[in-house]
Each structure stands twice: as C-alpha cells, then as structure tokens.
Design a binder for these strands. Structure first.
Length: 918
RNA sequence: GGGCGCGUAGCUCAGUUGGUUAGAGCGCUACGUUGACAUCGUAGAGGUCAGAGGUUCGAAUCCUCUCGCGCCCACCA
C-alpha cells in the first residue's frame, strides 16, 4: 500500500469519484424491508422540494447540507436512514417563467390556449426541470434517488384528489364569494400567506361626500354638536368627510358608516349621501366595526374591495359593487371617465376630479402595510371573488395540541410560540388559483345545477345523466400538494409498504419563511389523514446573507454559486463552513465579493485533514498495525490521552447532533482534530513512529494513530463526507481486520467508554501548560528558534511536579516540541509559574537588560498583588465560603496560594536582578 | 397595535442549568520553512459583555427600565 498523496487536498480529483462510488454501492437506497422485515429503526427526512425550475443557490446549499449531515449520521448509527428527494411544480412561479418566455416571443398564454400552454410548461420542465437535483449531488447529498418524486407525478395527483374529495365530503372544503387577495399581474387569487405586507409610505386622503338636501337639517344639528366629519362648502352645501389610502375605491363605495353609539352622528344614520363622480346616492349606515376614536369616526364603505367593508355590507345589507377588472383596471361599473384606467392612474384621476369639484379636503402622510404578491411583488388588490376555501379551524386543533404537548418540537424553541399563535388565529385558506399549471380542481358542474366532486373524472352527471359536464377551470394552490409530501411520496392513498415503513418521519429541516406555508399545513394533514404528525422535530435554520447582511438574491446579484465553490474549494470546504456557522437561530453571512475568504475556514480545515492523513499514512507505512488490545500495556501517556479525547469528542458530537446544535458539532470536531490530534498528538508521536524507535512504543503509537484517525474520519464524515471517505479507505486497520463497504456505512463512534482516562487527560493538560509556558518565555525573551535552552523545574504543587517528573519520556519529547532541553539551572533567568503549581526557570544571563526586566517584574508584582487581594477578600467572605460549591471555593484557595507563591518568587527574582539597588 | 429575537474582540458570531483567567473563525502584529500541512507553526495585541438600576456570596447569563437594530403577525379607514 504505497501512499502517494498530493501535498494539497484537491477536491476536483476526489469528490466526483467518491460520489459515484457511493451511488454505485447503492448506499443511499433504503428498502422498506429493512424496517418491516429486518427490524431496523427508520430515520426519515423528506426534502423540502425545491421548485422544479430552481437553480441551486446557497440557501439550498445550507438546507441540504444540514439534512445530509443528519441523514449520514443516522445512517452510521445503523438506522434505516432515508432521505426522499424531489421537486415541486411551483404553480405560479413556474407559470410565470414560461409566460415570460412567451412574452419574449410576443405571445401570451391565451394565444396558445390552455392545453398547448400546459404542454409547453411540461416541455420546459422536461428539458431543464430538476437540474437542481443533479446539483445537489455535487454537494454530496445522499438522497435516495430511486425515490425522486415530483408533485405533479401521477401517484401524487391521486393523493391530491383523495384529500380534496375527503375534505369536501367532511365539509372542510367549500366554495364561496369572499374578499380575497388578488394579484392583478398573475391574474389569480392568493392565500393570506402569499400576500406579503410591506411597510409603505403613502398618503391618507380626506374626501368630501355631499349630503342630499333632505339631510341638511340633521347635518347642521350634528355640526352644532361638534361632529368633525360634517362641514359646509362655501356655497352652502353640507357634506361628510371620509378618509382613505386608496381614493380610487370610492368609485365602488356603497355607503358611509358610523358607530351605532356615536352620538355625534346618530341623526345622520339613514341619510342619503351623493357619492361624487358617480351620480349614485348611498346611505349612511351604523355598524359597530367603526372605531369612534379613529379619525372623524366616519368611514367610507367599499364592500367589494375591502374585507371589513364587505362584512359591514353583509350586516347592514348595503350593496356590493365591484369596480375593477382582473388586471385591476376600472371596469364598466365605474363611471365612464375612469373605465379601463389602471387603478393607480384612476387614483390620480379621481383625486383630480374631486379637487376640481372642491371635494378634496386634504391629505396627510401615512405609512401603512401594503400587501404584495409573494411571487411578482405587485400590489395585491383585495377583491370580492368566488373561490374555493379550506375550513382550517378543525384541522388546526390536533396540530396545535401536538406542539403544546411536545409531540412536535421546534429548534430553536422560540418558533413554538410563532407556530402556536398562527394556529390559534388560523383563517380559512383560499386554495383555488386562476392558473393553468397545477392540479386541476376535481369539481365538475352540470347545467342541471349539480356539482360533482370526485376522485375519478366523471363521465356523466349522476343527477340528470348529462355527459356535458364542465370541470372547474381553476387549479389548486401549489402548497395544497406540498402539504401532502410526507406521505404522498410513499404512494398514499395506497397502503404501501413504504408508507408502513417510513411514515411518520422524523426531522423536518427548513427555513422559517415557510413555517406557515408548508410546515404547519403538513402537520395538519398528517393528523387528518394518519392521526399522526408527519415528523417529530422541526429544525428551522437561518438565512444566507451577504457581508452587508442582505439576503442573497438573484436580483441583487449578491449570491454565491455553490457549484463554483465546489469546483474551486470543494464540497467539503463549503459544507464545513456552512455548518460551522450554523448556530441555532442565526443567519449566515458570506461575502460574495471574497468567496475564497468566505469559505477559507472550511478549505483550510479540509487541507489540514488531508495532510494529517497524508502524514499518518507515510508514518504508518505498509507494515501491519497491531490491534489496540495487543498494545494495551505499551500505551504511553499521549496515547491514552488522545484515545480519551477521542471518546470525549465522540460523546459531545453525538450529544450536539441530537440537539441540532450543528455549529457546536463542527466547532468541537474542528478543535479536536486540529488542536488535539494535529497540534499535540501527531507532534508527540513523531519520534515514536521512526524506524529506530523502541519497538513496543512504536507499535503502540502506530495502533493509536490508526485508531484515532479511524474515529476522527467517522466523526467528521457527516459534515465532510468526501475527504474523510477518501482517507479512511486508505487507512490501515488495527489488528488487520477487514472492513466492508465505505465509510458512509461505518459505525458511528459512541461506544468507546473504556478509552476515557481522566488521569491521562489531567497529566497531559499539565504538560501542555508546561510547554506553553516554556514557549511563552522563549518568545518573551527572544530566544532564537533554533537555540536550545536549559530549563529548570522546581517547587510548586507536588502532584504536578511528580506528574511532570514521572513522565520523563514524554517530557523529553515535549522538550523537542518546544526546542528546549530539560535540566537544572541557577542564577538570573526567566521565570514562569504554572497554573496548577510548579514552575519553569530559564537562565537568561546575557540575553536581556536587567534593569528593564526588574521594572517589568515590579509591575507584574503589583498586578499579582491586586489579584491576590481580590482572592483573599473573596475567601474572607463567609457567604461565599458557605454557599458556593466546595469545588469553587477550593479553586479560589488554590488561586490565592498560587498567587502568593508567584509574588514571593518574583520578589526573589527582583532581588537577584537588582543586586541591592532597590 | 401585538409578539419574538438581537446588541460580547476590528469583522462575523459562540457562550447549554448563574460559578476557575469570557471563547472561536477571519483579520492584525512579531518570529519561524530541521519535509504532513505557509491553505502551515509558535507567540502576541485586542473586550466596562449596548446603557442604567435591581436580585445574589457571585451576573455576559435572572428581573425592570432606557437606547439602537432586525424579524413575524394584525382589518383601524
């Protein structure tokens, strides 16, 4: 086994081949037999299906890296670890993309007609769709590609049908005319969640509505009583003042409302108002919705274009008048002068016309939240429309209970409240979309009035027998099918083996943005159709942002292409960087202007791992490596130490994985591997690996090294699968054991308790401290790197002293590390005191300016005395001594002893240096 | 208008139930290439833990208020 590794990790030469090997090995596929027949415990994640037209961005990179880490970890734990991939047809988004293509050809979807248009979308999806799944492979995702699903697959269509019909039959789906959010650009209704509120600076206009002459008497009386909304023009006409942020809607006003208990306006209720510009007369009505204390306490009512006004109309019986077309231009119900005008042009025109008639009372600056389409950012128009809805309240109940009783947990936990608040205040869900791309609503209408809602397309009307049925033209909200994903991917409503084996799943990893859109609804559907939540843990990670904290987006051009990172730095570098920044609940910042810098920690770490592996392989050579048992008696301090640290690293990594503390997993393994394995163990063991070293010691070192690297590769594998797999393959196995398969299915290390060795850890910690102190002193006194110095060890706590003395072999090696030799010395020198007791002395005759040194030491004495004073005060405090844990008090005592000791030593030193000058 | 979160080193952030000398990465400074790695090594500088008050023997951590950010939800025209 001659090892010939490049001195740098070259991802391009490694990663694609390793991925191919995993795929060829069939490691990603999980058969239900493993669960149902072999009794393996399942672990299931369903991917948040990216839009079928999507191109991989860093957000996907983060989301899928996290999932892959979890899946790989559980797989190594021996679970039937299944990750189901797939894509979402993404109704509006995909339709918009294709419509844009058509627009470039000068065509609209209407030019093609429904059938041809849908065919065109399928062509488009067939050509470029799902490319993102291929891209996921390059970042190492170990999805079960045999199970790739698409929300418009035949199988999933059946699930959608079943759910729609089931809910309809339970009276949980209904059709009705209500105010919905309408996107005038997409020409479709939207759900409440799809209308995103953006704070917008605008105007609040005050309009004057003249009163019919019959009401002038009442108006005059009201004005007398101080009714602010009532006024009189110069020519003596009485009018009411109302306010609005959308003046164009006044064309659709059918009333003016006041609060029934508002004494100011009581006499005006029932009065006729001459609605300007329209020639219509509308009534003043009383409704408790009106807030007497807001503005003038009088509000214009536009039932067809405002949800509250619609409610007022339904209570008071006033007319409902829709004055807008699908594109939000003014329709034929509007006065001729405004017909066909865009709503914003109409706004200006209305204001101008009112001003001309002296009916514009003024305007105020006004910031308020304006809903925008989440797909095209157009201002959404509230509009009366006939749509299909899901009654959510009954569905929400078990989903809410699941969170309250801990059946489902959220990480970070604070999302629990957000979720529950939404569930508690849930509103019905508008599910019909006036689009062509999506699941057609399974409802047919017959001329006889019969409405057929069916799982299978009906041939004839069950009531009158007519075969002339018309299917509802609308499609379902994209999220209607997404919400079924955790079970539709397994073939439901068929009772499949997959379903039995893999539902319910376990972790749901996604971004908080789609908590309501998707996560909440999946939970509701899980309960409705299976009586069980679709997963038990929801892990919500942060957003990927640029260096300035802006969300990465195509339009801002501040994105980083994951594939570019993979190509230049490697998937492992990217994965590690993402995971190490993935602290619970915080966003990830990456500088798109310095991609290499942004991922340098991952790149550097990958290279470090590579070189540690390279060194080990060179050092181990081709000779067989003994088993750990065989060398047990020959293990040195550093061997026992690193084994103990390895066990500790494994324990901590496992614990943090269980709690979704991925940042701490990455951080912990980074410091274990770099700081302990590389910086200390490899350095300590170098001499023992050499040909001429003591054979027993050499054998122990070789075994320990191979064992530790084996464990380290396993631990790092979920985060950095490529490099670890590559190296692990080449490592010799202690005891000559042969291991089948790839690292991807090697056992996760968590049963090495026997390696725990607190004594070795304490001893090596003391040695580390000693070496660090020697190095520090050398630096401080500018002892040239190559120069050997004599050190002197004396005094201090006997335990530490003995530990240092007792490990003379280790100490010699440590001395090599620090380029010092152990020995004894006297006279003037550098003086270091070890924390646990013990001291280092470096003779420094001729190396330094003695007067300067004396001054420095005096300052040091003053500082230490201050600290000592503080420690003594603390110990004199009875409360502290009696209430603090013994351990803490003891440490404080030790600290005081040590400080006092140091002060004495330094004062001695000053005397030596000073020669009596002070 | 409600709710949530944040403010810790130059930058980006960790800091589990209050308890040794508050940490990391990047950046910065000095020195160093005797072959695993300069994508490296060693050492170092740098923090009133936003501010004020309180609880406690002890507070970055718990409580109250103030200031400054960010997010979510909501029908005040």
């Amino acid at each position: 086994m001659s090892q010939d590794l490049a001195p740098r990790y070259e991802p391009g030469a490694i990663e694609p081949a390793r991925y191919a090997a995993w795929q060829d090995g069939g490691y990603f596929h999980v058969s239900p037999d493993r669960v149902l027949d072999e009794g393996a415990e399942p672990y299931v994640i369903v991917i948040p299906p990216p839009n079928v037209t999507a191109v991989l961005h860093m957000g996907h990179g983060l989301n899928n890296t996290i999932q892959d880490v979890l899946i790989r970890w559980r797989r190594m734990q021996g679970r039937a670890s299944l990750w189901v991939p797939g894509t979402d047809h993404a109704g509006i988004a995909t339709q918009n993309v294709v419509e844009r293509q058509l627009a470039a050809e000068g065509k609209t979807r209407d030019d093609l007609g429904r059938e041809a248009f849908v065919e065109r979308v399928w062509d488009f999806v067939g050509e470029t769709g799902g490319a993102i799944l291929e891209q996921l492979k390059s970042i190492g995702c170990s999805c079960d590609w045999d199970r790739t699903r698409f929300t418009l697959d035949e199988e999933l269509n059946r699930a959608v049908r079943e759910v729609f019909v089931h809910l309809y039959e339970k009276d949980l789906i209904y059709r009705g005319e209500y105010i919905i959010n309408w996107c005038p650009r997409c020409h479709t209704a939207l759900s409440n969640e799809e209308a995103e509120g953006h704070e917008t600076g605008g105007s609040l206009w005050h309009l004057r509505y003249p009163l019919a002459e019959s009401a002038w008497g009442a108006a005059a009386a009201a004005a007398e009583d101080g009714a602010e909304a009532v006024g009189r023009t110069d020519d003596g006409r009485w009018y009411l003042t109302v306010s609005t942020t959308r003046p164009e809607t006044m064309l659709g006003d059918t009333g003016v409302a006041v609060h029934p208990d508002d004494d100011r306006y009581r006499a005006l209720v029932g009065a006729d108002v001459l609605l300007p510009l329209t020639g219509r007369t509308i009534p003043v009505v009383a409704d408790a919705y009106v807030d007497r204390s807001f503005g003038s306490g009088m509000v214009k009512v536009t039932p067809a274009h405002d949800p509250n006004d619609f409610d007022i109309a339904s209570r008071t019986g006033i007319e409902v008048l829709d004055v807008m077309a699908d594109d939000a231009s003014m329709n034929d119900a509007a006065p001729e002068a405004f017909r066909g005008m865009d709503r914003f042009d109409a706004r200006k025109a209305v204001l101008k016309a009112l001003e001309a008639e002296g009916l514009l009372a003024g305007r105020d600056d006004h910031t308020h939240t304006v809903p925008h389409c989440y797909r095209c950012d157009t201002v959404v128009e509230p509009r009366l429309s006939l749509q299909w809805f899901v009654k959510m309240k009954p569905l929400a109940e078990p989903a809410l209970a699941a969170s309250r009783d801990g059946t489902i947990t959220f990480a970070p936990a604070r999302w629990t409240k957000v979720y529950e608040h939404w569930m508690e205040n849930i509103r019905d869900w508008c599910i019909s979309r006036q689009l062509w791309w999506g699941h057609r609503i399974p409802v047919w209408y017959c001329d006889c009035g019969e409405v057929v809602v069916a799982r299978e397309d009906p041939d004839a009307c069950p009531k009158c027998g007519s075969s002339d049925l018309t299917q509802d033209p609308d499609v379902l909200d994209t999220w209607f099918s997404s919400q079924l994903w955790p079970f539709s991917v397994f073939g439901w409503p068929e009772k499949t083996r997959d379903l039995a084996a893999f539902y319910p799943g376990h972790s749901m990893v996604t971004a908080p943005e789609i908590l309501f859109f998707w996560v909440a609804r999946m939970i509701m559907m899980g309960y409705e159709f299976h009586g069980k939540a679709p997963f038990t843990e929801v892990y919500l990670h942060g957003t990927v942002r640029d260096a300035k904290g802006r969300k990465m987006s195509k339009s801002l051009g501040n994105g980083i292409d994951p594939l570019e990172v993979v190509e230049t730095l490697g998937a492992d570098a990217m994965r590690f960087t993402l995971v190490s920044q993935c602290a619970v609940g915080t966003d990830i910042h990456l500088d798109h202007e310095d991609v290499e810098g942004a991922f340098s920690s991952g790149r550097n770490f990958a290279n470090k791992i590579w070189n540690a592996g390279r060194f080990a392989l060179l050092g181990l050579g081709d000779a067989p490596v003994a088993s750990l048992d065989a060398v047990a008696d020959d293990l040195q301090l550093e061997d026992r130490w690193i084994l103990s640290r390895t066990h500790r690293a494994a324990t901590e990594a496992t614990r943090n994985l269980e709690r979704y503390r991925l940042h701490e997993v990455a951080d912990g393994l980074y410091h274990f591997f770099w700081g302990e394995v590389c910086d200390w163990y490899l350095e300590l063991v170098k001499g023992r690996l050499a040909e001429g070293a003591d054979p027993a010691s050499r054998a122990a070192a070789r075994t320990t090294l191979a064992t530790v690297l084996d464990r380290a590769m396993r631990l790092l594998h979920p985060i950095m699968p490529f490099i670890t797999s590559e190296l692990w393959q080449r490592l010799p196995r202690p005891g000559g054991q042969t291991v089948e398969g790839d690292l991807i299915v090697a056992a996760w290390p968590e049963h090495d308790e026997a390696w725990s060795d607190p004594e070795a850890e304490a001893a090596l910690a003391a040695l580390q401290e000693f070496v660090a102190e020697v190095r520090r002193l050398r630096k401080e006194y500018n002892v040239p790197e190559g120069e050997r110095v004599t050190i002197h060890l004396a005094g201090g706590d006997p335990t530490v002293h003995e530990t240092v003395r007792g490990q003379s072999e280790a100490l010699e090696r440590l001395a090599r590390v620090g380029a010092v030799t152990a020995g004894s010395g006297t006279g003037v020198g550098a003086h270091g005191v070890l924390r646990g007791g013990g001291e280092v002395f470096l003779p420094l005759e001729g190396l330094i300016d003695l007067a300067q040194e004396r001054e420095r030491l005096s300052g040091e004495v003053t500082r230490l005395q201050g600290q000592l004073e503080g420690a003594r005060r603390k110990l004199a405090n009875e409360q502290f001594v009696s209430k603090a844990p013994d351990e803490v008090v003891e440490k404080e005592r030790e600290k005081a002893r040590s400080l006092a000791d140091q002060v004495d030593k330094l004062q001695d030193k000053i005397r030596q240096l000073g020669g009596g000058e002070d």
